[in-house]
Each structure stands twice: as C-alpha cells, then as structure tokens.
C-alpha cells in the first residue's frame, strides 16, 4: 500500500503545462492573441466605468451638513444617451471583426496532405486513439511529431464519441472541441516544442469525468517514427508468461480488451497490445507501475470508483499470472 501515497503523482510536469497563456501551437497562439486584446479592452472599460462609479460614490455621498434638501432633479439627456450607446457599438464592432477573423483562421484552415491523421474516440472514462493510416490503436496517450519551422507538420484529430458527450482540451495546443456521438468533429495543432502536454475532458460525462486525463507526447520526427514502428508490431509473445496469457485469454477480459495476434478482440476497453508502453492507467488515474497494475487488475473500483471495469474476482494466483503476462506487453 506504500504505492497509495504517491499513486496520484502521474509525472513531474512543469507548473504551466495547462496554462492557456503559454500557447505552443498555431491555434492556441491565435486564441492567445485575441484573448490579450479582449482582456485589454475589458480591463480599460473596467477601469473607466469602475473609476466613474467610485468617483460618483465619493463625490456625491450625503454629507452630514446638508441632509435635508433634495438635489436637483435631472431626468435624463438625449446627447449623453447617444454617446454611451455609440461608443460601446464601436468597441463591439472592433471585437467582432477580430473575432470573426480568428474563428476563420482556426476553423477554416486547410491542411497539407502530409498532416498526421488521428481519430480520437471518447469513452466513459478514457480516450481511444486510432491512427488509421498507420494501423495503430492505443489509448489515452497521444503521440505526435513536433512541427519545427524548417519542417512544419500538422496533426489533425477527428473527434468522435462511443457513448456520451466529452470534450478534448489541451490548452497549450488548441481550444477545446467536443466529442459527440453520431458526429465527426475536427481539431488541429502543430506543436512547436517536444515534450509532454496535458489536458482534461472538459464536458461532464458521468461518474469519473474527473479522471479522463489527456496526455499528448510530442516527439522529434525520428523518435516518432520509431514509436510508430514499435506500435505497429504485434503483441510480444513471451514464452515465460504462457500461463498468464492462457488465463487472460480464458477469462472474460477478452470481451472488452484487444491484444493483437490473440483471440482477445473486445472493443469496450482500451487496447492492451502495447500496454506497457504507456505511462498511466485508467486515463491518468494512476501511474503504470507493476504494483499499481496489479492493484488495478485486482480491483479497479478502488482506484477509479465507478469506472466500467469490474472487479474480476480473480484468485491471487490468477492475478499474479495475468499481471506477469500484461507486464510483458511492451
């Protein structure tokens, strides 16, 4: 249980990793620009109107020496009304133009043919990630190549949902876009730096909405290509864990999970073919370590209450065998 103390420390991440004001891709940068403009305009309005309010309250407070008489009764002024109608209209007009341009820049961008295409499918409560052109299926952790100025490379996500509405939000890469059943939505980004980007599901989707962590790992192109090659291989078939493999394939694990090259072909849960290449379990609920993996297989409800993977009631021996087998799925 010593693991319990630090099960939540997924990884050491820089503090600003989900700050919308530290954009690291074109769409998030466009949004950042318009955010600054909007904040500046709103800040100035606040200072002016707030200042006038403070001035009025102080200047026109009742003083103790003249409580009796009423002040001059003023009913209004058409000129003043006109002034404070026209100025806001001008400000709104400017904001509208900028907004329309940014919307168009982000939404109507045309993507070069070499863009990486990925399909993300939201599930209660994890992300299925498919690379249709590369034949890869994985979960929760999205790997993409970096886009450096010399060789720009875009990633285009097709967003779908298998059950209820979710929302994909990686603040440093792009604004959020919802994943809605029976509908294809799109999002794109071109990460300017390698490294780990985090995000969360941003549309309430049921019990474990809080534990739908998004991890985007941005690689150098060569590193990404290596990752692709690894993922394209079928599952490791290690003779030492044949017994565990047998137990796994003979239980109902196979109804929900896929391991390529075996009869396990379930689609409800995450693909386990390269389980051990991932850093977290349960969509970021816990770190992927041997001890925690064992705890997870034993009773996921203890680590992610309400998640759809049941306690399989495995014996200690079955548990050891299955975990030993899963641990080889690099």
């Amino acid at each position: 249980m010593a693991d319990n103390l630090n099960i939540h420390q997924i990884a050491v991440v820089p503090e600003q990793v989900t700050n919308i004001f530290k954009p690291l891709a074109t769409p998030s940068e466009s949004i950042y620009q318009i955010s600054l403009l909007t904040l500046a305009i709103c800040g100035v309005i606040f200072l002016i109107v707030g200042g006038l309010l403070v001035y009025t309250i102080i200047r026109f407070r009742t003083r103790s020496n003249d409580e009796q008489s009423e002040p001059p009764q003023i009913y209004g002024s058409n000129q003043i009304e006109l002034a404070w109608t026209v100025f806001p209209i001008l400000i709104v007009f400017v904001l509208i133009l900028v907004t329309a341009r940014t919307i168009s820049d982000v939404q109507n961008a045309t993507h070069p043919p070499d863009s990486l295409k990925v399909t993300v499918v939201g599930h209660q409560w994890w992300w299925e990630i498919r690379y249709p052109d590369l034949g890869i299926v994985t979960a929760n952790e999205l790997h993409v190549p970096v886009s450096d100025p010399a060789k720009p490379r875009r990633t285009v996500l097709k967003l779908q949902s298998a059950d209820v509405a979710h929302s994909y939000w990686v603040p440093q890469l792009s604004g959020k876009v919802d994943l809605i059943p029976n509908r294809d939505n799109y999002m794109w980004f071109d990460p300017k730096q390698t490294g780990l980007y985090l995000g969360n599901c941003a549309e309430y989707c049921g019990t474990q909405h809080a534990h739908m962590l998004i991890r985007v790992i941005v690689h150098q192109q060569e590193e990404f290509d290596r990752w692709v090659l690894e993922q394209q291989k079928p599952a490791v078939d290690n003779r030492e864990v044949t017994a565990g493999r047998k137990v796994f394939l003979s239980t109902s694990c196979v109804n929900c999970h896929t391991i390529s090259g075996t009869i396990a072909g379930g689609k409800f849960g995450p693909d386990l073919t390269h389980l051990m290449s991932r850093d977290t379990l349960g969509a970021g609920a816990i770190k992927n370590t041997p001890n925690l993996l064992r705890a997870w297989v034993h009773d996921p409800q203890k680590l992610k209450e309400g998640c759809l993977m049941p306690d399989m009631q495995l014996s200690q021996q079955e548990l050891d065998l299955i975990v030993a087998y899963l641990s080889t799925l690099k």
Binding site: I34, T38, I45, W169, G175, A202
Partner: peptide
C-alpha cells in the same frame, strides 16, 4: 453598489466568453 461593481465585472467576463475563440479555451 456591490451589484453595480460585480455586474460590471460579470458583463466584461461575458464579453470575453462571447469572443468565440477565447471561449474555446474558457468554456466548461
């Protein structure tokens, strides 16, 4: 008076949310 100040702020954050791209970050 509290209402006036706070509603002013609420209105201005509303303008931020109305700028759709800003809302893509701030929504939810």
């Amino acid at each position: 008076i509290g209402f006036l100040f706070q509603f002013l702020i609420a209105g201005l954050t509303g303008i931020m949310l109305a700028a759709a791209p800003f809302d893509w970050q701030l929504s939810d």
